[in-house]
Amino acid sequence: MSSATPPPQGAADDGAHTPSETVFDKGLQPERTLLAWRRTCLAFGVASLVGMRFTVDALGLLAVFAGVIGGGLAVLAYVLAATGYRRAHESLRGRGVLSRDGLPMLAGTASALVIGVLCAAYLVAGLLAA
């Protein structure tokens, strides 16, 4: 991508790349964080589907419903992680500031706790059936 606009202040200009194509950090911190989000989403998605597989005999349609919703939310989070990375990359390259807050973290914690509640319900159901 070649453009006539000058690079923002503070951007590395090696003549070969526009600023948006160069990484912010040689340690690839934003990229590693994106990968961490991706594997977390993958873990949540797999957990939803495996949970569905093991409860479908007992719970039927309810298990399918919960599994598909869990998997869908994981896919949504995966996509949001990509847009979040893009936004972080742009703001870091442009202003050197990380434009991010605690909402994704709160959502992640809530998702984990919801899985915990479902897990507890499964244990209780097993006890009642025994």
Binding site: F24, R32, A36, A43, L92
Partner: peptide, 16 residues
């Protein structure tokens, strides 16, 4: 920002 990002990855590791 690199420290904030590292903190975020630690958060995700705890979540997993």
């Amino acid at each position: 920002p690199r420290f904030s990002l590292a903190n975020e990855r630690t958060f995700l590791a705890w979540l997993r």
